[in-house]
């Protein structure tokens, strides 16, 4: 039998739980209504023939079967992977290096930190329009600069061979968010570890490789997971750039060189009115990203170091 004292404790804990649920209930409700609900709806639609106007008609797994026979599905997946394979590691390395530099004790470092973070607060559409001007082969500022060092700049967004590389370069613009997270991680590395490494005779590179990198690996892991998800959701910039391109073949142009997965999904949903098909694409993407994320999580045991963690337990 519980003592009155215990009952009071349990009641307090319960009360706190209720209060906690009450406070987070707006988010939970929003999550259920605006995320879980549409997800379940799209799961249902993915098994239907649904053109938005007429009621959905059940067609079993046909959408999924057709998807794997659709050349443009594979093409769009290829474009997205090609972009992800280059842009994701490049962004992670680039932002890490900048963060290491911004972690040095130099004059005006706060100004530099602000400068590097600022671009990431500008919205996607504005950034896309800005880079369209920068990459403009005739009136942009990039090609004349390249010309000064003897390189003939390509057509960038108007050239099917260079459109994706241009997007990769453009993606580095928004690394400010990553930099801030890395910076926080770098500043959390205990200084006594560096002191001990110095006493042991480690040079700067060895200190970086054996102390800084392992100690910040959880942050790298975090940025990798978020970056992976974001890369596979890449949409706004391509939408803005390719939709405003005369005779670029429309969205995903020129010549389908920027037909990212989400662009093709959008076309199916809102241009071809194959909402059921688009829903099946969304679920396939979800499964791909989920698998890749799980793979990254599984691999983390080999390269992410958590202070205080005891291996083998």
């Amino acid at each position: 039998m519980a003592k009155p004292h215990d009952r009071k404790n349990i009641s307090l804990a319960r009360r706190e739980s209720l209060w906690a649920y009450a406070f987070i209930s707006p988010w939970i409700l929003g999550f259920i209504i605006f995320t879980v609900g549409p997800m379940l709806a799209s799961l249902f639609f993915s098994f239907t023939d649904y053109n938005i106007v007429d009621p959905p008609r059940w067609n079993g797994i046909n959408n999924y079967v057709n998807l794997f026979q659709d050349d443009l599905f594979w093409h769009s997946l290829g474009v997205t992977f090609k972009f992800a394979v280059v842009a994701l590691p490049l962004g992670l390395v680039f932002s890490y290096l900048i963060a290491v530099l911004l972690n040095q004790k130099v004059r005006g470092v706060n100004v530099w930190r602000t400068i590097y973070f600022l671009p990431s607060v500008i919205a996607g559409v504005a950034v896309a329009l800005l880079w369209v001007r920068i990459f403009d082969p005739r009136y942009g500022i990039l090609n004349p600069l390249l010309e000064k060092i003897g390189i003939e700049g390509p057509g960038w967004f108007s050239d099917p061979q260079w459109a994706v590389p241009a997007l990769v370069i453009m993606s580095l613009w928004g690394v400010g968010g990553n930099i801030i997270i890395y910076l926080a991680g770098l500043q959390g590395v205990p200084t006594d570890l560096y002191d001990a490494a110095k006493v042991d005779g480690a040079n700067a590179w060895q200190r970086f490789w054996h102390v800084t990198l392992p100690m910040t690996s959880p942050v790298i892991f975090y940025n990798l997971v978020l970056g992976l998800i974001a890369t596979f959701q890449y949409f706004t910039e391509v939408y803005v750039i390719s939709s405003g391109n005369s005779n670029g073949g429309g969205l995903g142009g020129p010549a389908r060189s920027t037909l990212f997965y989400n662009i093709y999904l959008y076309q199916n949903a809102f241009k071809y009115f194959h909402m059921g098909y688009a829903s099946s694409m969304a679920w396939v993407l979800f499964i791909i990203v989920l698998c890749l994320t799980l793979l990254v999580f599984r691999s983390s045991a080999a390269w992410v170091y958590y202070e205080g963690e005891v291996k083998g337990r």
Binding site: D159, P160, N247, G248, G253, P254, A255, Q267, F273
Partner: peptide, 17 residues
């Protein structure tokens, strides 16, 4: 309509590029 337009305009884009 939209799908065929995109297929054809992709061809035009190949020529223009």
């Amino acid at each position: 309509w939209g799908k065929i337009e995109d297929a054809l305009n992709n061809g035009l884009s190949l020529v223009y590029s």
